[in-house]
Amino acid sequence: MRVTAERDRCVGSGQCALLSPEVFDQDDDGLVVVLREEPAEELRGEVFQAADLCPARSIRVHG
């Protein structure tokens, strides 16, 4: 599983950082930062939820 995020699209809802804090964070501008591009398999559920709930659809999960 590989995670990417498009910062250009991010609207700073912070849902990802709340749902999956090991994988996502918000920087000082409030925009998404991917902390772990290849997170552990047991985080798949929360990573998918973060991607699904992102209002700007800026998170992609590959594999």
Binding site: G12, Q26, D28, D29, G30
Partner: peptide, 14 residues
């Protein structure tokens, strides 16, 4: 405009 306001409402700030 939103970019100017986002930092006020991040998960950490809240």
């Amino acid at each position: 405009q939103r970019r100017m306001l986002i930092p006020e409402f991040t998960a950490r700030r809240v």
